[in-house]
Every structure is written in structure tokens, then in C-alpha cells.
């Protein structure tokens, strides 16, 4: 606890102690609320019974069934392909855009900046229906390409923002030195600036990947049956009701998420 609390404790001992105790207790309760459903979900993925209430023995059967489920695996594969492509495109668009907006003064730069913020804040359902109408009027049939377009549109601004934050702390002399030493502007960007931006690019890329991997609403309006992603399949299954296969799948997701969160915390610590 900071020293300010200690000094005030002298004045108002009981009051402050009670307050800290209450806040700490409340926080613990909220974490219980946040974690109990997730833990229950994971625990019951090992339950032999189809119903969730009774524990009737340990099994890995549901994991085996997920592994044997063709449509689910295909959806996972689709999700992975779409997330990878849209991450690469988002990193390219976001990083180059951030650099150009930082390095050069464009007429109307403020307007461009505002435009990049819109996909981040726009409700997903509005983006979904407007893209659906757009693809329909443009005569594009829905599938992988339309899903990737949707995902890149809301992902790349996050890369842009992450890279811009890092650029603000960058020494302008770095690029000037590279140019003075005879590098072309492209070489200076690629060999000097990009390595400096790597932590922000990695963070933005992770963000873009996980946004794409989790996305349901925009995908819902821009996909067809053959390009259905994992969230689309999971949504369909969850609508029908309980299914222990979903528990198993969710458990894998939760563990993967926790691993990515810990990994990115580790990367951030390294970057410091």
C-alpha cells in the first residue's frame, strides 16, 4: 500500500481499514463472478455425463469428439486461415499508414485520422449489414474474401493506433541519420524504423489476430456456409442448447487465451 494510506491511517484508523477491507473483499467477489463460469465450463468438459448437473466420472471423450468432428475442424481451419491473412494485411496497412501519417504532413490528415477511428467504434452489427449490402450491390458473392475484407477493416486501425503510440516516442534523428548515411527513404524505414517499432507491431498484430479469431457479428453477415468460422459454428451449436463438445472446445480456447495473455505480458516486459 502506498505511504499516503499509511499516514492517513494514523488519523482515521478504523474507517480506512474497513474501507480497504471492503474494497478488497468486493474485488475478490467480482473475480469469483468472472472466473466461476469459466472454471465450471472447463471442469464439465471432463464430465462423462451429457447433462451438466451431475458429475458421473472423468472422461476425455468430448475432446476426442471435437477432434473427430469434421465441420468443427473445418471451421477452425477457416478461422485460422482468415485470421492469419487478415493479420498480415492489417499489419501492412496499419504500420505503413501510421508511419506515413507520422512522417509526412498530409492535407486532410485530421479527416483521415477520424476515418480510421470509425471502424474501431462503430457497432459491429452496423458494419456487418452495411458490408452485406455493399457486397450484394457490388455483385461480390460472400465467402473467404468478403470475411477477410470485413476483418481487416476493423482490425487494421488497432495496429495503426498501437504503432502511432510508439512513433510518438521515437527519436526523429534516427531516420535523419539513416538518410544522411545514404539510405533511401524506403531503406531507412525498413532497416531503421521497423525494427524500432517491432514491439508495437507485434502487439498490434496479436490484437488483430485475436479480434479476427473471435469475431462473430461482422462474420455472421459476410460469410457463407463454406467459409463459416469457428465462432459461427459455436454460435449455431450454443443456440441449440447444451453440448459437452462445446465445453471441451471452450476449454481449449480459454487455455489458449490465457497462454496468449501471459505471452504478451512477457513480450511487453521484454520490450521495457
Amino acid at each position: 500500500m502506498p505511504s499516503s494510506d499509511a499516514s492517513s491511517t494514523l488519523r482515521l484508523p478504523s474507517g480506512l481499514r474497513t474501507r480497504d477491507f471492503l474494497i478488497g473483499g468486493w474485488t475478490a467477489l467480482v473475480f469469483v463472478f468472472l472466473y466461476v463460469p469459466i472454471i465450471v465450463l472447463v471442469a464439465y468438459s471432463f464430465n462423462a455425463s451429457r447433462l451438466n448437473v451431475l458429475w458421473s466420472g472423468f472422461t476425455l471423450d468430448w475432446y476426442v469428439r471435437v477432434w473427430d468432428n469434421g465441420p468443427l475442424l473445418r471451421a477452425a481451419q477457416n478461422s485460422l486461415v482468415i485470421a492469419c491473412i487478415s493479420t498480415v494485411l492489417s499489419v501492412v496497412l496499419g504500420t505503413s499508414g501510421a508511419w506515413l501519417l507520422h512522417r509526412y504532413r498530409f492535407r486532410g490528415a485530421g479527416g483521415i485520422q477520424t476515418l480510421t477511428a470509425i471502424p474501431m467504434v462503430m457497432p459491429e452489427i452496423l458494419m456487418g449489414i452495411s458490408l452485406l449490402i455493399f457486397f450484394a450491390s457490388a455483385g461480390l458473392s460472400l465467402g473467404f474474401a468478403t470475411v477477410v475484407i470485413g476483418h481487416v477493416t476493423f482490425s487494421f486501425p488497432f495496429v495503426l493506433v498501437a504503432v502511432q503510440a510508439r512513433l510518438r516516442g521515437l527519436d526523429p534523428a534516427l531516420e535523419e541519420a539513416a538518410l544522411d548515411l545514404g539510405a533511401t527513404p524506403f531503406k531507412a524505414f525498413w532497416l531503421v524504423i521497423v525494427p524500432c517499432l517491432r514491439p508495437a507491431i507485434v502487439a498490434g498484430g496479436l490484437m488483430a489476430f485475436s479480434l479476427s479469431w473471435d469475431e462473430l457479428i461482422v462474420t455472421f453477415f459476410t460469410t457463407n456456409a463454406s467459409a463459416a468460422t469457428l465462432p459461427i459454428r459455436v454460435f449455431g451449436m450454443a443456440k441449440v442448447g447444451l453440448n459437452p463438445m462445446l465445453n471441451a472446445l471452450s476449454a481449449i480456447f480459454v487455455l489458449a487465451t490465457a497462454a496468449v495473455v501471459l505471452f504478451s505480458a512477457y513480450v511487453r516486459r521484454l520490450a521495457r
Partner: peptide, 12 residues
């Protein structure tokens, strides 16, 4: 964690 999974948790 995907909100879909967290919502499914509440169904269970």
C-alpha cells in the same frame, strides 16, 4: 476470452 464462450458458460 471470446464473449461467445463466456455467454455459453452462462447457458450451462
Amino acid at each position: 476470452t471470446s464473449f461467445l464462450i463466456r455467454t455459453y458458460a452462462w447457458i450451462t
